[in-house]
Write a protein that binds this DNA or RNA. Structure first.
Lengths: 187, 187
DNA sequence: ATAATAAGCGGAGCATACTCCGTTTGTCAA
DNA sequence: TTGACAAACGGAGTATGCTCCGCTTATTAT
């Protein structure tokens, strides 16, 4: 990679980060970002094929950090499996609320499939979620565990979550309801 | 409503339906529709504030029909609760696959909240789903039942479902996995 | 029938995502 | 150092969703 290209990539990330601090992600256009970065739109798009990918790049560190932290937590369980899972959920929802604008862009952009589902990060997220689900899901195959991880992630995607919040549920209530649903339960 | 306005609305619906038969929904622009309908874009947008709403209008009958049919089925159960639920799921997925392009436009458009979640149709769909879930969900509050209906709908939304299919799961496998997850289960 | 009026029309125009391609520049072999 | 060239640049251009507003027309009261 040429040196100037590397510098431009950083300029883009900086410009985007600054603009996203100033106003809502949805209110920042790609042209705005190029302008503030002091580059042409062509250069912007060569570095990041669309807004979602740019947001993904900006979220990478945060998400990696979250995953690393949670993996540590799950390694040495400090409470019951159920409590452990509920806490995991709560922290995941907390994390998401903090970065909701970037995540919404990623999850609702026209390129969800490639940007979100096909990213290595999604795989990591699924792996983490599987680890969190395993202790509360006896006797299910790996394939089914993966399926449930996918479903859990899907349930908490921005649109669905926003709707639940709008309906009046708090983060905690949502975490509890999800727990009830996912935890192996006998009447 | 003025008579010419009513005629135009029909012209729009016809034009859209025809174009959507010719090529993919995503490959048809609002301008195309206006042109084929023989009206201005302003008129088009006065009738349908965005592409998602137009797709919703085109789906209304189909969905209504599905709901009505399922309500009948659920009224006189012909098999075990579990089987009943799995069959409901299968039919829902079948229905969705048949209309997937319209549904994708509705569920992934920028106006999901108003077009999808806040539509009376979503309420009906939730009610139906609650009816389907009730026999397999002992002892849960109405609020929690509604929550689970929301989650079920969310899990099967176009992005999430497309991903599962892409992963190699068949419609039947997905229905089974979902059933396992939703049906009250004891080890 | 006619005039007044509100309901509706249409398309120019705007914003934004994204592409294309002629020009420039960093890199590296000689 | 310099020449050659791939890599990268940048911005004009395109496509599309959507708005705005001056003009037209159906309706209705007289």
């Amino acid at each position: 990679m040429r040196k100037d290209a590397q510098i431009n990539q950083q300029k883009i990330l900086d410009a985007a980060a600054n603009l996203f601090k100033e106003r809502a992600v949805s209110k920042v256009s790609m042209k705005d970002i190029a302008q503030v970065a002091g580059i042409g739109t062509g250069t912007l798009y060569r570095n990041f094929p669309n807004k979602s990918e740019l947001c993904m790049a900006l979220s990478l560190d945060y998400i990696q950090q979250f995953i690393t932290g949670e993996e540590a937590q799950l390694q040495n369980p400090s409470s019951s499996a159920n409590k452990q899972f509920e806490d995991f959920l709560t922290r995941w929802l907390e994390f998401r609320e903090r970065r909701i604008q970037l995540l919404t862009e990623i999850e609702t952009g026209p390129s969800v499939m490639s940007t979100f589902y096909h990213s290595p990060l999604y795989q990591q997220l699924v792996n983490l979620t599987m680890q969190a689900l395993k202790p509360i899901s006896d006797n299910i195959s790996k394939a089914e565990l993966k399926f449930r991880a996918d479903m859990l992630i899907s349930m908490l995607k921005s649109d669905s979550y926003a709707y639940q919040r709008e309906q009046g549920l708090t983060r905690e209530q949502i975490a509890i309801n999800i727990s009830h649903l996912m935890i192996k339960r006998c009447d």
